[in-house]
Design a binder for these strands. Structure first.
Lengths: 365, 365
DNA sequence: CTGAAAGCGCTTACAG
DNA sequence: CTGAAAGCGCTTACAG
């Protein structure tokens, strides 16, 4: 019933929009912002559904109508209303991605991998950043689900219970990316940060270091750094002394460098017996390396320095920085591939992928 | 008419969803994905519109009903469908932001500034990256406008004609951020890259350099770097020799460092008379500085090195790097503030803001 | 290949 | 403070 009435009204409107004289008062509730599909249909002299088909599945419309419709679209400057389409079809081409921070290059690289893969399939990425706050993460997940996405990606395997419940009950494929370890909500791509820490322990032991410090930045928030520390500590148990330093400060892009710069002389003064420092990330390690360079501190003679992530700059310092390379862009691409497969109704090769890591031994250890 | 029918149907559905026995066959077209506002209304024993009010403007509903509704929302796990809300109200809380790249920390910092400001007002940022391709930018702008956003932000003042037309005709506030210079579509926040280049010219002249090279990376795409070069060249005219080097490669995060690292020995070998190099950004300059350190090249004795952006690492190298600091986070915040003011129907203090820059003279020149 | 009808899940505008 | 009606701009499901 409403269909009939509504169509009558919109047909009139379409005539107005396409320029036909019409003195009937407008019945719309508010200002008309944009050209609609009905107006295009009127312009092309076809039914709205035909315009819809011509746009979404051109092959299903005869060439003659198709070209008339394309012309009307062009002439009227029609831009489809995504909200209406999404509401009617119960489908969106938007994939939300939740990360803890954009200040950390690591997440940005994963995001780039995701974006490339997702855009190639005609999807759009909706980015949310939690600021390492799991409460904020929960709120963000709820809001983003309101966009009825076909799938969702979230960094990490640790969430508040309500977040996990919400995502599990959303009935869409979910990928948790960054680390492996515990059971995922649905799918998982990442690497074992515990094993990465253990690998660094083995490396430092092999090079003869026995009094080792781990330097973290706001470890309370960064549980992946805690996992690396755990791996280091367990692997060194009984073979070398380990001490944890948890530093503050250094917000924003490149902030970690300043923290490493400040930390080096502090730690050497307080615990002069240290012979090696494993920094939670390369930024901090590079900051320490630059500080050693300025102060004339011998690396690795006085103190060995290692980092984590495998940023390009690790290969450019003197000495080069020992680090663990994580395949970040690959994580993004694989995570997106898994999700897109499931969205398309296919089963991905695997639902849990460990992308591994590589220890690059440099001159700094 | 339709309203009556539809409401009859949905009332039945609501009863089913809330658990009342009902054998009538479902009339819906497809699977029911989520709890709807109608179901919450039925659960709380009120009209749907009252639920809508309780959610969007709690003060307009009596405390008694409000708490009954809140309880129903909680119990049913209701998540509002943003698409339906947006379609009905012709308003979205999503603000699209278009940048050329996420690999460049500079854009990421601007984005962070935007996100903070925008989230504080209850808006969500929808991020699009063009890969420095203005054709892609046009497509992205069109798609994003389909979400009927209340405003939009785009990096840069240069776009294809169709992009500018599309944005101008969208009837929403637009902020172009990053550089100042030409007339904006609507509002503009940034700094003059031409003047920044000229400022560096003055600095290098004052320090006695007379044979100066500008090193860019894919200058064809990076017109802001070209503006800095133009400013440098014009300011040096008649006072010093200038030469432009346009390098390739170095994609992705930190890629610029490798380019600077590779460039330094090349340039010194080919044009040994050079006495100063102004790199298009700090990443490249740091790469060159690290190369000089490894090769034992004296900076600034043999060659002076300067960068642009004012990244934190510029203060940590030995010697410290001369650079131009751009207030990136401020650009993001100011741009967002302007846009939000206009969205709220207020007039911002100004529609065109030059945030300026600061030249930090370091030991590298 | 084309179309008339119905509906997606909300909010606006009008009443009371 | 609360509600019945109508509509936002599309797509699905059913016909022909």
């Amino acid at each position: 019933m409403r269909g009939t009435r509504a169509r009558g009204a919109t047909a009139d409107e379409a005539k107005q929009a396409t320029g036909e004289a019409c003195a009937a008062p407008r019945r719309t509730r508010r200002r008309r912002a944009a050209v609609t599909l009905n107006e295009v249909a009127a312009g092309a002299g076809v039914a709205p559904i035909t315009v819809s088909r011509a746009l979404n599945n051109p092959a299903s419309v005869s060439p003659a109508l198709r070209s008339r419709i394309e012309q009307a679209v062009e002439q009227l400057g029609y831009v489809p209303n995504r909200m209406a389409g999404a509401l009617a079809s119960a489908r969106t081409r938007v994939i939300p991605v939740i990360v803890p921070s954009l200040s950390n290059v690591v997440f940005v690289e994963v995001i780039e991998g995701i974006q490339e893969a997702v855009e190639a399939q005609g999807y759009q990425m909706l980015l949310g950043s939690t600021g390492y706050d799991l409460g904020h993460e929960a709120a963000l997940a709820a809001t983003l689900l309101g966009w009825a996405p076909p799938g969702m990606m979230v960094a990490g395997l640790r969430h508040e219970t309500r977040t996990a419940t919400l995502l599990r009950n959303a009935g869409i494929p979910i990928v948790e990316f960054m680390e492996t370890g515990r059971a995922p909500i649905d799918m998982n791509v990442g690497l074992s940060h515990v094993r990465a820490g253990a690998a660094m322990a083995e490396h430092l032991l092999a090079r003869g270091y026995r009094r080792i410090g781990f330097v973290g930045l706001r470890m309370k928030d960064d549980y992946r750094a805690r996992q690396r520390y755990d791996g280091l500590r367990r692997q060194l148990a009984g073979k070398a002394a380990v001490v944890l330093f948890d530093r503050e400060g250094g917000a924003g892009q490149g902030g970690g460098q300043q923290v490493g710069w400040d930390a080096l002389p502090d730690l050497l003064a307080i615990t002069p017996a240290l012979d090696a420092l494993f920094f939670a990330n390369d930024e901090m390690a590079v900051g320490a390396l630059l500080r050693a360079r300025r102060d004339g501190t011998d690396v690795p003679g006085r103190i060995a320095i290692a980092g984590f992530n495998g940023l390009p700059i690790a290969a450019l310092t003197t000495p080069t920085l020992t680090t663990i390379v994580s395949p970040r862009k690959q994580i993004g691409r694989e995570a997106a591939a898994m999700l897109l497969a499931r969205i398309a109704g296919r089963e991905p090769t695997t639902r849990r992928l460990d992308v591994g890591f590589t220890l690059e031994a440099g001159g700094s250890t």
